Amino acid sequence: MSFSLDTPSIQTLKSEAKAYREERARVGETITHGAALETVARAHGYRDWNTARAMLPERVATPVQVGNRVKGTYLGQNFRGLVIGVQLLSNMRHYQVTINFDEPVDVVTSELFSAYRQRVTTTVDINGISPAHTGNGQPQMRLMRE
């Protein structure tokens, strides 16, 4: 079975059910967690919670995990490094990734001065490619596992 970036995870549906329950409680309506799970599952097009639970992944796939060795380009410069942080962003399509480079990377193309970075935090998609681009149209970061 394959999943797209639009496929929610079970954890996502559980979070939505919790938020739905809290929302209903604010307007004075008490519902059980089970009822909230059923409502959220139907809202996502599933017959019931058990059907959603059987069909969806437990968690959303990530491009890298903390502790992975990675390589790639950052602002056009090659690097190798260690992933020290990964966080799924609220749009459920991008990740904030923090990488500690093995060797500092000069992020300035000018011959007049340099600016070295050893640790960067950037946003990438599931393929490890930054949605932000440099002035020449290249992604700010291209990331892959070693």
Rank of each mutant, 00 (worst) to 15 (best):
L75Y: 09
V66S: 09
K18T: 15
L37E: 03
D106I: 02
Q11T: 13
A132D: 11
I84E: 10
M1N: 12
V86R: 03
T39C: 13
K18P: 07
S114E: 01
R117Y: 05
E58L: 15
Y116A: 00
V107R: 01
K71F: 05
S9Y: 13
A35T: 07
A61L: 12
E58P: 12
H33Y: 15
R53K: 05
V86W: 00
V83P: 02
V27T: 15
D125T: 01
S4Q: 03
Q87V: 03
L89A: 08
T98L: 09
L89Q: 12
I99Y: 00
H33D: 13
G128P: 06
M144K: 06
H44A: 02
A54W: 07
H33Q: 15
V83T: 09
V40S: 00
R26Y: 08
T39V: 07
T62Y: 02
G81L: 00
A115T: 07
V108W: 08
H44Y: 08
V64S: 05
V40T: 13
L88K: 14
R80A: 05
W49D: 05
V86C: 06
S110K: 06
E22I: 14
H133C: 14
W49N: 05
A61C: 07
L82Y: 11
G137I: 03
P63I: 01
M144P: 01
I31Y: 04
M55L: 11
E58M: 10
E29Y: 10
A25W: 01
E38H: 04
G76C: 02
P8E: 07
T123E: 14
